[in-house]
Computed example of a mutant assay.
Amino acid sequence: MIATLRIGFVLLAFVLLTLSLLPVQLMAIGLGLSLMRRLPRWWHRVMCRVMGLKVSTHGALAAERPLLLVSNHASWKDILVLGSVADVVFIAKSEVRDWPVFGWLARLQRSVFIERAERRKTGAQISDVSSRLVAGEIVVLFAEGTTSDGNRVLPFKSSLFGAASAALAHAPGGMVYIQPVSIAYVGIHGVAMGRYHRPLAAWPGDVALGPHLLGVLRQGAMEVDVVFGDPVAFDASTDRKTTARLMEARVRAGLAAALRGRITR
């Protein structure tokens, strides 16, 4: 009974919050107002609280621009978590555009959709991302290219760093900054998250979204650490594959530290 009431409360809050902010966001996008970058953060912050996601940040978002955030990816909840701590836009696979509810929200947040299977569109898509970076927007790249189990970091795809290279020609001083970010689901109901609850944290691609979403809403009270690493300057002399490996190592180190409780709270 309590779980059912909780699900009903979250869904009601989602509908009321979204419908109240929707016209404002559409107007901001239509008029090109800077509010269109800030409003999604407010939405994500409220929804995190409503869903019981307690987000703690460690380190700081880099002040340098253009800025590309490179993160691990375990679940759709990563969008809520990162979206609640910074004014960001996400790079998402093209299939997300057509997902019920989530695809609509991604479009409202002005996500950049990438069709990885169609190489002929790669140039235009990378150009879109690089133009966002040069315009001062903070772009989030989930460099694994898929979701993991939340306990590890999968190999980063260096090809996804092409947007940073494309932005160099128009970036001030010919420099783009890349910052590693680790997202770790570390606790539930005030207790360290063990193997039993780990499926609530991660959302592998072979698990249906509906049942997973309902499971998360029933539980709530999940603790999440967001670890910001030191940014790295990326210029024309920087090797993309080397940068991908460096970011992978730093994101993996941040995730491991958070899961082992080695981060000062």
Rank of each mutant, 00 (worst) to 15 (best):
T264W: 00
F14P: 00
L16C: 14
G32H: 11
R198T: 09
T4Y: 02
R260T: 07
D87W: 04
I79Y: 04
L80V: 08
M193R: 13
I2Q: 13
W104R: 08
H73D: 04
R132W: 07
V85T: 15
L108N: 05
L209I: 15
I188Q: 08
T238R: 02
L217F: 15
V232L: 14
D230P: 04
S34V: 11
R41Q: 09
A106E: 04
W42Y: 09
R110M: 13
R45L: 06
G83N: 10
V55L: 05
G30I: 14
R195I: 14
V24T: 10
R195F: 04
D206E: 15
F142P: 00
I7W: 01
V70A: 14
L61R: 13
F142D: 01
R252S: 15
S71A: 15
A164P: 05
D239S: 14
V207P: 00
I188T: 13
V112W: 02
R45T: 14
L255E: 04
R65M: 05
S34F: 05
R97D: 11
I114Y: 02
V101S: 00
V70F: 00
L26T: 10
S182M: 04
S182R: 08
A60I: 09
R245K: 14
G173E: 07
V85Q: 12
R252A: 15
I263N: 00
R252V: 11
W42F: 15
I178W: 00
C48L: 05
D128L: 14
R265P: 05
P172Y: 03
A86S: 13
S111W: 01
G261R: 12
S75F: 07
Y196N: 03
V186S: 08
V134F: 05
G162R: 07
F113M: 03
T147L: 00
H170I: 09
V232K: 07
G83E: 07
H189M: 10
M47V: 09
G32E: 06
A106F: 11
E137C: 03
L80F: 14
G136F: 09
G215M: 05
V46N: 01
I114S: 03
S34A: 12
G8E: 08
K77F: 13
V96M: 03
L53H: 04
H58K: 05
V224T: 08
F102W: 08
V46S: 03
S34H: 13
P40Q: 12
D235R: 09
L105T: 10
H212E: 13
R260K: 12
Q109P: 01
R218N: 05
T242E: 13
V191M: 11
G205T: 14
K241V: 09
L154R: 12
D239L: 07
M175S: 10
P100V: 13
M222Q: 13
A201R: 13
R218Y: 08
V96Q: 05
M1Q: 10
T146M: 00
A74D: 01
I178D: 00
R262F: 01
R152E: 07
S148N: 09
V224E: 02
P180V: 11
R132M: 11
T122W: 06
W203P: 04
R110Y: 01
A124M: 08
I126M: 11
S20C: 13
G8T: 12
G59N: 07
S131E: 15
P199C: 09
G210W: 13
L154T: 11
G261V: 15
F142I: 12
R252D: 15
E248S: 07
E64S: 14
M193S: 06
G229H: 05
A167C: 10
T264F: 02
L217W: 12
